[in-house]
């Protein structure tokens, strides 16, 4: 039996592992994909204290090596369920099950899909969820961005420097995002904003060739495009734990800054927790807070 099982090896989970190991607790970190979480997609981190410039990959690798050197065990399996037996909890993965005294859920979030029928098969064939990752493939081409938040605006602006033409499709008639980014985008000759519209179909021949856009009055038009960048928000990865852990309406774990969930001995850390600021530094902070809480819980068992 482990003292603490941490689900998710992103910045929150791995920071929790560092704190828990330094408190001499045995730690198992379960991860479905690879260590690092979504930060590995960031080419250059510029807002983490003491690291003016560091790539997401390098950051993730350093934190992983730090946690592993302290003795945290990493197993690459997807956790699908938690069974609460009070002082003994079981985490079930796709391959095994592991017991522990306390659990920290740090599963983060993933990109929201549009939900169109052929969307999955076109990922990497014109459909993307990360402008900074895949923008380079569309140099001199036509791209469309769908979404109305800051990410969509920033993606569109970023793509204006690469693509010959950038459409931004937004379902409302105005942006609620950062005013500076909105005006910067409006000033770009290559950018065209299409308001009150949604993407209703993806047209393809081996790769994306165009999109069907429907406006709020039901008018349909086809736009030829080589790429579609989907920036319609993120969804937390908590559905698997919903029968045990209380979530908020959006699916985030209902836990405050103390990281406490509705179940004693189970904690929430990182982007999957209900919070206002989802940044690298707040994920790391959650890691520390949740680990301290778990250590205290175990000492009182």
């Amino acid at each position: 039996m482990y003292d603490i099982i941490i689900i998710g090896a992103g910045p929150a989970g791995m920071t929790a592992a560092i704190y828990a190991r330094r408190a001499s607790k045995s730690v198992l970190v379960l991860e479905a994909l690879s260590y690092g979480g979504q930060i590995i997609n960031t080419p250059d981190i510029e807002n983490y204290p003491a690291a003016a410039h560091i790539s997401g990959f390098e950051f993730a690798t350093k934190v992983y090596e730090q946690a592993a050197a302290l003795g945290a065990e990493f197993v690459f399996e997807k956790a699908v369920d938690i069974i609460d037996g009070g002082s003994e909890k079981t985490v079930v993965t796709t391959d095994n099950s592991y017991t522990c005294k306390a659990v920290i859920i740090a599963t983060g979030s993933r990109n929201r899909r549009l939900g169109l029928p052929n969307e999955d098969e076109l990922i990497g064939r014109g459909v993307s969820y990360c402008a900074t990752c895949d923008g380079a493939f569309f140099r001199g081409k036509t791209v469309a961005v769908v979404g109305g938040g800051n990410t969509a605006l920033e993606d569109a602006l970023y793509l204006c420097d690469l693509a010959a033409k950038v459409y931004l499709i937004h379902r409302r008639d105005a942006f609620r995002g950062d005013e500076k980014t909105v005006s910067a985008l409006k000033a770009r000759e290559t950018a065209e904003i299409i308001y009150n519209s949604t993407v209703t179909a993806l047209l393809a021949d081996k790769r994306l060739t165009g999109i069907e856009v429907t406006d709020k009055d039901g008018g349909v038009r086809t736009i030829e495009t080589d790429g579609l960048f989907v920036a319609v928000g993120r969804v937390p990865e908590n559905a698997g734990f919903a029968k045990l852990i209380k979530l908020d309406e959006a699916g985030y774990i209902a836990a405050g800054e103390d990281c406490l969930t509705n179940v004693p001995g189970i904690y929430a850390a990182g982007d999957g927790r209900a919070k206002n600021v989802r940044q690298l530094v707040t994920a790391a902070a959650d890691g520390a807070v949740s680990a301290e809480a778990a250590v205290r819980y175990i000492s009182e068992l």
Binding site: I123, G124, R125, G126, F137
Partner: peptide
């Protein structure tokens, strides 16, 4: 390497990496 081999990437419709 898609930076050096962008023709291959284009030929095989690769627009996200790793692929």
């Amino acid at each position: 390497n898609v930076d050096e081999q962008n023709e291959l990437a284009y030929e095989y419709n690769v627009s996200s990496i790793p692929c």
